[in-house]
Design a protein around this nucleic acid. Sequence first.
DNA 1: ACAGTTTTTGTGGATTTTCACAAATTAACT
DNA 2: AGTTAATTTGTGAAAATCCACAAAAACTGT
Lengths: 411, 411
Amino acid sequence: MSHYNDPFRGEFDSLEEFADRVSDVLRCPVTIEDANHRLIAYSAHDDHTDPARTATIISRRVPEKVINSLWKQGAIPALLKSREPVRVPPIEGVGLGSRVAVSIWKNDEVIGFIWVLETNRTLSPEEMEWLKLAAKAAKNKVLQLYMRKNKKEERVQELFWKLLTSHIATEDEIRAHLAAVQITAAPQFAVVVFRFAADLTTEMERQISYLLQTTQQLPLLLYTTDRRNVILLAAPKTDQPLKELNEFIESFSAKMKERFHIHDVQSGFGGVYESYRLIEKSYREALAVLALKEKFGNEIKTVYGYAQLGIYQFFDFLLEKKRQGEWANPALAKLHIYDKKHHSDLVKTFETFFDHNENVQETADALNIHPNTLAYRLKRIADIAELDLNDMNQKIKLYIDIKLAKYEAHS
Amino acid sequence: MSHYNDPFRGEFDSLEEFADRVSDVLRCPVTIEDANHRLIAYSAHDDHTDPARTATIISRRVPEKVINSLWKQGAIPALLKSREPVRVPPIEGVGLGSRVAVSIWKNDEVIGFIWVLETNRTLSPEEMEWLKLAAKAAKNKVLQLYMRKNKKEERVQELFWKLLTSHIATEDEIRAHLAAVQITAAPQFAVVVFRFAADLTTEMERQISYLLQTTQQLPLLLYTTDRRNVILLAAPKTDQPLKELNEFIESFSAKMKERFHIHDVQSGFGGVYESYRLIEKSYREALAVLALKEKFGNEIKTVYGYAQLGIYQFFDFLLEKKRQGEWANPALAKLHIYDKKHHSDLVKTFETFFDHNENVQETADALNIHPNTLAYRLKRIADIAELDLNDMNQKIKLYIDIKLAKYEAHS
DNA sequence: ACAGTTTTTGTGGATTTTCACAAATTAACT
DNA sequence: AGTTAATTTGTGAAAATCCACAAAAACTGT
């Protein structure tokens, strides 16, 4: 054959044509993905394929569980590290047959992958070398796409910032803008913010972007970054949006940790709304969650949503009032005095009791005391603070005042 | 004897001398009280007496339980109605021996009483007539006292208003003023306000004044009225001031009802403070309780103290925020929508559950449903509102929002 | 140091609560 | 009218709570 030296030299009209050429040379089905595992092109002449490939082509992206297993199995980390082709043995659970992959590089950045399915044959070492050549040849084509997308990204980000700052007034205008950048309107959405320990580096941005692009738990309409923050417009699909968002955040944090060893990510999301004019509100609420997390690290560690902040939502207001002097809780004052005088822990006890949903057993465990001791202390609290433990009202007030005092101390 | 016609004609230097004279004539111990059962004078030459009289002389007023039993037994109502002497048979429980009493009148108002103890003898009908003459003779002397006291009352009331409106700036000044009108400073106090259905009549004022004067549960430092309101400065003695104040109010209301058939009295008291400069604050708080009672009749029917208002304390403030638009509870909104669509009662259920201190049994009874039904509904609420029932925070927030919506509706 | 008080822990049994599951009832929709 | 889904009620067993009482431990003040 005439292409022993470089079978992929020459011009190709499209990446599809290129994919077909690679497929012809290697006599296997081929798919080309961008750095975020979005399908760019695939060879068309193949009869044999596997479920993973089919699903990828149908949805125009690699299914998340396939990506996950490729991470676990080590293929993706290897591809990101080296320009050498990598062979992936079959993975049963996710419908993945044996395949070989190589990454496409631009300078020292991976901008895509070529996958070759080893249907009823195995690539020879020589063919592996050809695959490397294919990756080099693909570079320019993929890069064009990448650039085009980047330009669009910029326009989209600009739009997002306008929404986050309420710079577009009417619902209709917003819809028009979204349509213009090919973002389909969603029935409900919320703004999610991830905050990192330090300003984001380009490297981190790439990793984050990668994670987000490959997430399919939750449709993400818009994305931007700002110093330490990553800001998203997420569109939950079900009627349990909070659950979706929580799971998304948990899984995002987990993946940041296990794949990129980035631990200290704080997360928050605002209210789930249906009108696009409330994007700014949702954004402010997401920021409020993050602000509160800095003050109340422990109490709301597992809370990400503004809606789940509960009473903390209005602590800013209350603190303001308190600072104006129009606030006092003689009952709490009495308890504090008692605690000081007798080196006891009545306030802490009450607080913990409520933190644990008034559950006696749990609270006793948390405080390392006997359940009877807890009962005794509560009775003592009722006496000293003249608090009726059967009156939820009064209990709530005391609880709020305890937390508010903490909040004040941190401010 | 020379005094067959009127043994009490002539001048007496003091009421003590007069009491001795009556005692001589009737050969019995005699005590003279003002309209509020405060001791004015008593005969000194007697050997025989009973525990009630002793207690009266020691504390310079008739013990409250004695007054109570005299009301129950009917003697006091009779004395207030007629100028005729009344015989009171012995009342064992309160140490009261047999005695005869007559009221002292000025125009058509009772300004005092003369009590004659029938120690080892019984007054004859003729002696009863003499007693009537004694009552007439006592009138002027008692009246002088009464007038003197009224003038003082006016000065005191003026001072009270100054305190209620924070017109005296420093603690020291206040103490000086109080000392000037012979009111001993108390370590703690609170302002109590009773509010009647209509403006107070002179008649009612007298009755109220009477009740308050005869109360010994709680020292009352100052007293004044204002249209529908009776305002008091009460000084609880124990370290359970709220309990004292509550009991005082309950007993006052009960007595207004049973003795004068005045039913619709609303009551409130402010915070218990130690600094006199906070009288105004306590007063404002007492008024706040009354204002809230008008809006939240049912929920806080048995609450009188500002401290026991719990979360309602800051509802004004929250409502303000809510009206500014910075407030929403999507969870509650969802529940309302669901209720409307399915003719259910989830919101009411949750509210009642918290009103009953999260007690399943009580709540089920209150709603007339099976406890399991309640459990089912709560689970439903958790699903629909995406509420974590183990998170006190979120529950509290929902509860507050439910009550706040009610509050808003009433405003 | 010691008498008195307050606090903590232990014990056992009556009472409630919780939970899962099933049956019965009611509401909703075609 | 009939079918499905949602709600309510019933049952029983395991778990938790409540309560009263008592012993032990810790703390207080002189």
